[in-house]
Simulated scan of single mutants.
Amino acid sequence: MAISLQKGQKVDLTKTNPGLTKVLVGLGWDTNKYDGGADFDLDAAVFMLGENGKVTSEKDFIFYNNLKDAAQSVIHLGDNLTGEGDGDDEQVKIDLSKVPANVAKIAFTVTIHQATERSQNFGQVSNAFIRIVNEGSNEELIRYDLGEDFSIETAVVIGELYRNNSEWKFNAIGSGFQGGLSALCGNFGINM
């Protein structure tokens, strides 16, 4: 049974699941009904971070235009342009055994594409979640439902996997940003 987290909670991933190396990270969301007229296009992105909380190169930024890192430890399974349907809207496969040693954290984010132009923000998004699934057994191990804490934000750091000695843990972050993808990239050391 999955561990359900609240904002700020941290939980062990690999210590309680010995031998776990391949996980699927699912991200999902719904959009509220509103009269803006434009479709919502939310995008999941992953930042592979060093101890300093920054990427070592732009190749450590995994998103719809760069679907995998050089080690092929993090693979984005593609952009969902509409968010239609139930379940995961976008997915990322991670092979923890292949993550380069200089990567201390793997941050999972969601941004709203063209949020400013379309007058959209996370106040118009509901039922957002992240879940971590054992790829081998398809068992959901961890789930974090974000709740409705956002208003004007256009980007959210949902959570992160991080190394703790030889184990991996998950931190439910749920931190919003204004400024969309460029604000996130700046935060993680990428100049856009």
Rank of each mutant, 00 (worst) to 15 (best):
D95L: 05
A128F: 03
H113E: 06
N121R: 04
T111M: 06
L81N: 13
L96A: 10
I112D: 08
A128D: 04
D88C: 04
A101R: 05
S97M: 07
G123W: 09
G123I: 06
S97G: 13
G87R: 06
Q91E: 13
N80Y: 11
R131M: 03
T116P: 04
I130E: 01
G83A: 01
V92D: 04
N121M: 06
G78N: 00
Q91M: 15
L81W: 14
E90S: 00
P100E: 06
P100R: 01
K105N: 13
Q114Y: 08
T82P: 05
T109F: 08
T116F: 10
N121Y: 12
L77M: 11
E90K: 14
G123Y: 11
H113G: 01
E117Y: 10
L81R: 15
G83L: 04
G87I: 08
L96E: 10
I112Y: 04
L96T: 11
F108P: 00
N80S: 10
D88R: 05
V103Y: 06
G85D: 09
N127A: 07
N80R: 11
A115W: 10
L77Q: 13
I112L: 07
V110N: 01
G123M: 07
D95A: 03
N102L: 09
P100H: 08
F108R: 01
N102M: 07
T111G: 00
S119G: 05
F122K: 01
N121W: 07
V92K: 01
Q124I: 06
F108Y: 11
Q91P: 14
V103G: 02
K105H: 09
L96S: 08
R118T: 11
K93Q: 12
A101E: 14
S126I: 12
I130N: 07
D79M: 05
I106K: 03
F122Y: 10
V125R: 09
T109W: 03
T109D: 09
N102P: 12
F122G: 03
L81H: 11
T116E: 15
N80A: 02
V99K: 00
G85Q: 10
K98D: 04
T109G: 02
Q124M: 14
R131G: 06
D88N: 15
Q114D: 14
L96D: 09
L81F: 09
K98M: 07
S97K: 11
A101C: 10
S119W: 12
V110A: 03
K105M: 08
S97Y: 00
I94S: 03
A128G: 05
V110C: 02
N127V: 08
N121C: 15
I130L: 14
I130Q: 06
N121H: 12
S126C: 13
N121A: 11
L77R: 15
V92W: 01
F129G: 02
D86Q: 15
T111L: 03
K105D: 12
S126R: 13
Q91S: 14
G78L: 00
R118G: 08
T111P: 12
K98S: 01
S119V: 14
Q114I: 02
A101M: 00
E84Y: 14
K105P: 01
Q120R: 13
T116M: 12
A107E: 08
K98L: 02
P100N: 05
